[in-house]
């Protein structure tokens, strides 16, 4: 019944790349995995799948799902696309209000943690990795990137934008989304109703790296419900299968620039 040919362009199973891998595994879908390394910028050269939307996507270097010639970008909406079009277990809640909650989480976390988790991960892992590359060659590759915002996001990783003060400010921004997640999970086992859904997949991929990147915010004592929820998701066979696609053996270190922080403050 899986009539649509699915090709997923992704990197290591972490952050934005992890989300569609989990959803496709949950669906038991047949898909072609197209692994690429965004730190070599192969996603910015001719021949890589591309569309107006994929070039402008606010998540910048995220995964692309090519389905019947359509280039699907922006990971929460990619999860909705998978939930709606791929046969298999339902990943979207049944009730309209629960669906609202899933989408409201997707929007809120996509814009908050989508920016913060990526920036913290880039500062910790990507910056030293890029520092090992030839500086002039790297600059040359970055200078060719369009649009400007996407280029600026890479420049921020190499030009020292993420100093201690910036990182402290980023960590402070975590308390609102993490506080909301913890109190939601104190009330129920999953984020959008009584069943596991794409809201949980989406949030898991953005929160799990924070155990390592911001242990003072996501920690067993302060966020016990979050810890329990992370554990339940990590134990799912689909999540294990998605993680097992790692080539480096250290997917938790794989970060690229994500969503821009809100410009108003």
């Amino acid at each position: 019944m899986n009539a649509t040919m699915l090709e997923l362009y992704h990197w290591e199973p972490n952050g934005f790349y992890l989300k569609p891998l989990i959803a496709l595994e949950e669906k038991g879908a047949t898909f072609t995995s197209r692994w690429f390394d965004p730190t070599t910028f192969e996603q910015t050269v001719d021949g890589f799948p591309s569309s107006v939307e994929s070039r402008l996507t606010l998540e910048r270097e995220g995964p692309l799902l090519v389905a019947d010639g359509e280039v699907i970008s922006s990971t929460f909406f990619m999860l909705e696309y998978i939930a709606e079009s791929v046969p298999g277990p339902a990943l979207m809640p049944e009730a309209a209000y629960d669906r609202y909650r899933a989408r409201a989480w997707g929007q809120f976390l996509g814009l908050s943690l989508g920016a913060t988790t990526s920036a913290l991960g880039c500062a910790r892992h990507l910056a030293p990795e890029l520092a090992r590359q030839d500086a002039a060659a790297l600059r040359g590759k970055i200078e060719r990137i369009e649009p400007l915002e996407r280029r600026s996001a890479w420049l921020a990783v190499v030009d020292g934008t993420y100093d201690e003060a910036a990182l402290t400010a980023l960590r402070q921004r975590l308390s609102l989304p993490i506080g909301r997640l913890e109190s939601a999970l104190a009330k129920g086992p999953w984020l959008a109703g009584s069943a596991y859904s794409i809201a949980d997949i989406d949030a898991y991929a953005l929160v799990d790296p924070l155990r390592d990147l911001a242990p003072e915010v996501v920690d067993d004592e302060r966020t016990p419900h979050l810890k329990d929820w992370l554990g339940r998701i990590a134990a799912r066979p689909a999540v294990r299968a998605a993680r097992a696609r790692s080539r480096s053996g250290q997917p938790e270190q794989a970060f690229v620039p994500g969503v821009e922080s809100a410009r108003w403050g």
Partner: peptide, 13 residues
């Protein structure tokens, strides 16, 4: 689903 995805992508933009 593809058109719905496009609708959502543009709403986020």
């Amino acid at each position: 689903p593809a058109d719905r995805w496009r609708m959502r992508w543009w709403m986020r933009f």
